[in-house]
């Protein structure tokens, strides 16, 4: 197996006047959760749909599991799992019917009832999708995405509309898929989701990758200056420091023990993200 699941170089796609993707480069390693972040209209969905074989590119090199998606045949499709953004389809079919039916398309499907259990829909197996909640429908989408035991799973905005608890258990599900060897390309709006799940993430803006790193290091996050805040005589103080540990030690000595209201702040992923997409013009 190659160590690269997806390789994109110099990808371009234009719709009329709008350059949706403008020289995008990307490499997703086999077995990782790779997250693509970016504002609406940044070219995320276009890029992902080119990778999934739904759209044609104008130029550039694209290899997904060693195949050009524009020439992807049924064998290639059988190795992919795709969870699209919205789903209102098949309202009259039950969870069990849909998962069992989808399993028949694949040469080596997972056990449908097992998959239903894994996504936590056992109790809803006999329910038609019309009657499922938003979160349950998303779980069904994931079940349909993984039923063929894909090597590569595309997840587009998977947790939109989830309550916090449902999101947590969904994340567990995604991690367990990665741990069983599935490569996952995750597109999301939620930075905490990327931070919780992604091994690496790319920030896309104006059709280009503007940053690519682990969530911890994205945009030089780990090495950026930290802010140290504390209270002194009831007055808040704040100092920017490249060596916050030394600074706090100093403070501790000065206060001779506890420092009132002590906070050491690193830039959040959101701070970094906003500065990254803000630094590039939106269009």
């Amino acid at each position: 197996m190659t160590s690269t699941a997806i390789r994109v170089a110099g990808l371009h796609k234009r719709y009329g006047e709008k350059q949706a993707v403008a020289g995008l480069d990307l490499e997703v390693r086999t077995g990782e959760i790779f997250s693509v972040l970016g504002p609406n209209g940044a070219g995320k969905t276009t890029t992902v749909e080119i990778l999934e074989g739904f759209r044609k590119r104008d130029s550039g090199e694209v290899q997904v599991l060693g195949t050009d998606p524009q020439r992807g045949d049924r064998h290639w499709r059988a190795r992919l799992g795709i969870v699209l953004q919205s789903s209102e389809d098949r309202p009259e079919l039950t969870v069990r019917e849909q998962v069992h039916h989808a399993a028949k398309f694949y040469p080596r499907p997972r056990d449908p009832d097992e998959v239903i259990a894994v996504v936590g829909l056992e109790e809803k197996a006999a329910t038609r999708s019309r009657q499922l909640s938003g979160g349950q429908r998303r779980r069904l989408d994931v079940a349909l995405g993984v039923i063929g035991s894909p090597e590569l799973l595309f997840l587009d905005e998977p947790t939109t509309g989830f309550d916090p608890e449902a999101r947590r258990s969904f994340w567990e599900l995604i991690r367990s898929l990665r741990d069983s060897g599935t490569t996952i390309l995750l597109t999301t709006h939620y930075l905490d989701e990327a931070e919780a799940l992604a091994d690496r993430c790319a920030v896309v803006s104006s059709g280009r990758v503007v940053a690519l790193d682990t969530p911890k290091n994205l945009g030089g996050r780990a090495t950026r200056v930290a802010r140290v805040r504390w209270l002194e005589d009831g007055v808040p103080h704040e100092v920017e420091s490249e060596s916050p540990t030394a600074y706090v030690t100093e403070l501790a000595a000065r206060f001779d023990g506890e420092i009132p209201g002590l906070q050491v702040l690193r830039p959040t992923l959101e701070d970094v993200y906003l500065s990254l997409i803000g630094s590039k013009d939106e269009r």
Binding site: F54, R74, R77, L84, E88, D89, F105, Y106, P107
Partner: peptide, 17 residues
């Protein structure tokens, strides 16, 4: 209706001929 609600796109993303 299937084209509009995404059923067709979903099917196209599977190895179904």
């Amino acid at each position: 209706a299937e084209r509009d609600d995404g059923s067709l796109k979903r099917l196209r993303g599977t190895p179904m001929p």
